[in-house]
Design a protein around this nucleic acid. Structure first.
Lengths: 217, 217
DNA sequence: TGTACATCAGTGAACGCGCGTTCACTGATGTAC
DNA sequence: TGTACATCAGTGAACGCGCGTTCACTGATGTAC
């Protein structure tokens, strides 16, 4: 540590000192919007947004597909952490359903771009990309399923096909979330309310069905 | 009707005698597949598949977006007709739910390409395109809602928030359908079964919730 | 501390390609007389 | 029935453009001595 080097900014020419993977991810997110999907972005656009030469892209990702997958992973991890926190912060007065759905909707606003990737692009794109999205969905299902079982035991209510229940809720919430991204902020509150009711329908449904099943036995 | 003209095939050069709108739609559907989405098709690809010069495209559609919307309309109309028939063909032994879901899943196989457009591309693409998809979804919701009300009256069961119920079911089924397109034929049967249960959860849920509401009053 | 050298994340320039769109054209078809 | 003419759905050729990818390069950084 003898000499103090110049800070890692631009050198003489248009050369960037260093580019981090994270920087590229963030720049890409910045390009996304309600009408700009990941699959419509070009490598050169991403490079431009990051402020690097097009060919520099290859120093970080083999192709655009790899970038897309990295974004999916990021989105999934972020969202699961948030929802997880919401679930365990559940108090007596605020139901699990309400808390989780609200946390989800809140994320929809804060991390719009990130969730866009997860919610809206699961059906287009390469097989690898789709796999990544599917994997995230399954994570959610499993966590939700565990939660449902725990709650059922706690409240001593029945639970008909917990796996299917979890899947139904996950798919519904994600589908709803995808279309909620177009809504104005004012519409968000009522939308959240509606989504809660829908989820509750499913939960009440499973409980009732399990009870009827018991009766039949 | 004096002279018999040559049939409407190729003339001397590479000139097509006539190209119908329908022909273009069908050729475009032919290009779609599990890993080829509408938004990734180029005008020139469509022209090639139709067997016409690229610029001939403009004689039929102002741009690719218009073509996409035409396909959405076609897909929606087709599917609604099929499901409608299924609903009214309901017998005593086969429930409405089961019949409708089965009709839906069957269509998924037969008109795969067409449904691909409707199910998977609703979240990407131009505003006009998205509107078209949303419109179709609402059609479904309304029809389903009317059916639910009719059934509730018939069976004298309650119905909590029929609009929300219809929406929940529609969104769930469409989301499920979208991911079902990747499944192998063998997996279809069990998937249909699962989907039926999910839908039934929602229906049982609303019925129970309406009953509890009555009790409270 | 200084020097020589290897590494490798950055770059500019260039490539060939498929794209959407335009233009002026052509020739089949229908219509008026 | 024949002729003259308008219409318009088809076309080939050409345009400029942004794309993904390649190449040989450069210069900052770390390491060995």
């Amino acid at each position: 540590m003898s000499t103090i080097k110049t800070p890692p900014v631009q050198t003489t020419s248009g050369r960037r000192a260093s580019i981090s993977r994270e920087e590229i991810l963030q720049a890409t997110l910045g390009l996304l919007g309600p009408h700009r999907s990941l699959s419509s972005l070009s490598l050169r656009e991403v490079a431009r947004a990051t402020g690097m030469a097009p060919n520099s892209f290859y120093r970080h990702f083999p192709d655009m597909d790899a970038l897309a997958i990295a974004l999916i992973d990021l989105a999934g991890t972020t969202l699961r952490r948030i929802i997880g926190e919401a679930r365990h912060r559940v108090s007596a007065e605020r139901s699990v359903v309400r808390s989780s759905v609200e946390a989800f909707m809140e994320q929809l606003n804060t991390n719009q771009k990130l969730l866009h990737v997860l919610l809206r692009e699961g059906s287009v794109g390469s097989p690898a990309f789709r796999d990544a999205v599917e994997r995230e969905l399954r994570f959610f299902e499993e966590e939700l399923c565990a939660d449902l079982k725990r709650l059922a035991k706690l409240n001593n209510t029945g639970l008909y096909e917990p796996e299917l229940t979890a899947r139904a809720i996950t798919r519904l919430v994600f589908a709803a979330g995808a279309s909620a991204m177009d809504l104005s902020p004012e519409q968000h509150a009522s939308f959240t309310q509606e989504l809660c009711i829908m989820v509750r329908m499913i939960i009440v449904g499973t409980q009732t069905m399990s009870r009827n099943q018991e009766n039949r036995l």
